[in-house]
Amino acid sequence: MGSILRIIAQRLALGLLTLLIVSIVIFVSVNALPGDFAQAILGQGATPEAVEAFREDLGLNRPFLERYFTWLWDAVRLDFGTAFSQAQFAEFAGGAAGTGLGTVAEMLGPRFSNTMFLAGVTAVIAVPLSLMIGVLAALFRNSIFDRAANITTLTSISSPEFFLAYVLILLLAVMNPLLPSLSVINNDMSFSEALKVTLLPALTLTLVVTAHMMRMTRAAIINLLASPYIEMARLKGVSPMRVIVKHALPNALAPIINVIALNLAYLITGVVVIEVVFVYPGIGQLFVDAVKNRDIPVVQACCLIFAAAYILLNLTADIMSIISNPRLRHPK
């Protein structure tokens, strides 16, 4: 077990290092974006003095490195600063900037938990479903079922997301009014109510992510079917289902886990279109708005969260692949 803990510690350290590098990339690239928040807000007619004063107020005129380290240090403490847009409103309202009202963390918090909820619901449906279809497709490979599963999942992954969303809305909200077509979600809702409004976007996303995971499961299993130990299992009179689930699947886990992780990361970071269609208040929409408004603290915080999600999920996938390998779990 010692070696596994060492590997995990190593991966964690590498993950942190990656995150640090990503933070530099984010900060540099966001600062390199054309345009200036102060100029954008105050408009063409603003005097240079006004723009300068505004920049000073927001700390935009401090040296680059100083701003980076201040931001990094705050981010480590989960303080992402104050959104520029909110800061302005606070000032207009007579309060001082950054007094607690409208910090980035407060803006992101509920949005982020909504995104996680949607991703969670989707994962709970999509992962077992794709594993199951993948195993069955491998078991009945080249049969009608296998082909149907492949064609359906490939069609759904090839269609634009908004199209799938509208088809589902048509089927499940308009023709058979089972689910609401708008996913307006708020904190006062009970879990079952929240689940009900989230189901439609979650089903759409399931259609989007199933193909990858299902096909990888199928391919990874079929890849192993020529191995001597599979032949041995067959020659022991083991049933075909058991051969696949008990003998092939445990050895095929590593690539499957990796594809699952990639798809889960996509669920957290790439679902803007679905959010827009269903008016779901997730982090994606916020991110797009922030980019449009040059709201640098929000953009940076979102990027950092996305990067962390990718790194964390891939890290988990790595660790689970390692744990699924008995050679590493039980060294000689």
């Binding site: 191995s227 001597p228 130990y229 032949e231 041995m232 299992a233 020659l235 022991k236 003998h247 445990p250 050895n251 699924s324 008995p326 050679r327």
Partner: peptide
């Protein structure tokens, strides 16, 4: 059946 390579014919998992 007893296979040629026991190392390959036992399931590693």
């Amino acid at each position: 059946y007893v296979a040629q390579s026991a190392a390959a014919s036992f399931n590693p998992a």
